Simulated assay, not measured.
Amino acid sequence: MYAISIREPGEPDVLEWTEHPDPRPGPGEVLIDIVASAVNRADLSQRQGNYPPPKGASEIPGLECSGTIAELGEGVTGWQVGDEVCALLAGGGYAERVAVPAAQVLPKPAGVDLVDAAGVPEVACTVWSNVVMEAGLRSGQLLLVHGGAGGIGTCAIQIGKALGARVATTAGSAESRQLCADLGADPVISYRDEDFVAVVKEAGGADVILDNMGASYLDRNLSALAPDGHLAVIGLQGGRKAELDMGKMLVKRLHMSVLGLRGRPVEGPNGKAAIVADVRERLWPLIEAGKVRPLVHARVPMREAARAHAMLEAGDVRGKILLVR
């Protein structure tokens, strides 16, 4: 088969469409003929040499895909060859085929195009596991989403609204802010020239914050939280290290979680299988009802993954960039 290789750590041009051995499904796995994958910021970090795959995972980038099941591994039940699916991956999505644990596979949501479904699993599982399963967002609460116009952000805004929460968000350009408003976010805050802490405090403080920035936003996020609020950190675009004011957390009884998805085991109480199962049971009906939908910024041929990486790095991407076979 053909897949994207990372020739060496570096700029997007190190991505090459080359021949690889055909994967085979092991026990408990399925083999998927890939129709599309999607670009995530973790892929950029891997390409740059800063985010190696977990032990045993494919060196091929790509944390999600959609396609049809081509083969079932030993012991797999509940799936058939030919089923249209999407899947959460630890790697291997920028390819013609991938083997993945059956517990990380989801049926293509009714009403969603099979190509567009490639942009759902990673963002859905990331947002749902952090905002709902960990932080416990519920109706009437205020959710603050940083970077609301991106793949994670657009998904989080829609999930928050579908659950009956109020949603505030930060975004950059006027077009990005308008997209967030169209999805139901209010207030929409310009991170370029507005103080999100002041705006969110005026709205009563955030009960849950979904943060992709890390260090550079840490203290301001704690200030923006309401008493008993929860800060869920899922990215470190603003750095890894910051001073933590535990006194501020103590006074307001704040909670903070810093949780990754890729490196989790498949099984166990905190494993990917449990997250995928909960997403299928509780989020999939919202997607099939049209309350949460994938937003696609661009479709790019998979062999041109370098161009897709450059697009995401350039910024102002609204929704997901898909890589299409």
Rank of each mutant, 00 (worst) to 15 (best):
A206E: 04
V81L: 12
K108Y: 05
A298V: 12
P61W: 02
G75T: 00
G151F: 09
V127K: 00
N212K: 09
T169W: 01
M311Q: 08
G160K: 03
P21Q: 03
D219G: 13
Y2F: 15
G319A: 06
C65G: 05
Y51L: 13
I60F: 11
V199W: 09
P109D: 03
R303L: 15
D113E: 13
V123H: 03
P27C: 07
A289C: 03
K201Y: 13
L322H: 06
G238P: 08
L322F: 06
C125A: 10
I152W: 08
G150L: 11
K108T: 10
L142F: 09
A232Y: 02
D228K: 15
P61V: 00
G75I: 00
H255Y: 14
C65N: 06
I189F: 08
I209E: 05
M1A: 14
D219E: 14
G148N: 01
A308W: 12
S216L: 13
P9N: 01
L144N: 01
L144P: 09
R262V: 14
A298F: 11
L88G: 01
I321E: 07
V167Q: 03
L225I: 10
M302Y: 10
P269C: 06
P227A: 02
G119V: 04
D207L: 10
R253Y: 13
A185V: 04
E19N: 12
A198C: 11
A171S: 13
M1G: 13
A57K: 04
D186V: 06
P301G: 03
D22R: 13
V30G: 00
Q158A: 06
L89P: 08
E304L: 15
Q178R: 15
A314R: 11
A171V: 06
D278T: 06
V300S: 05
V199R: 15
K252I: 10
I157R: 00
M256H: 07
A90K: 13
G150R: 04
L259K: 12
H297N: 14
V115E: 04
M1S: 14
E175Y: 10
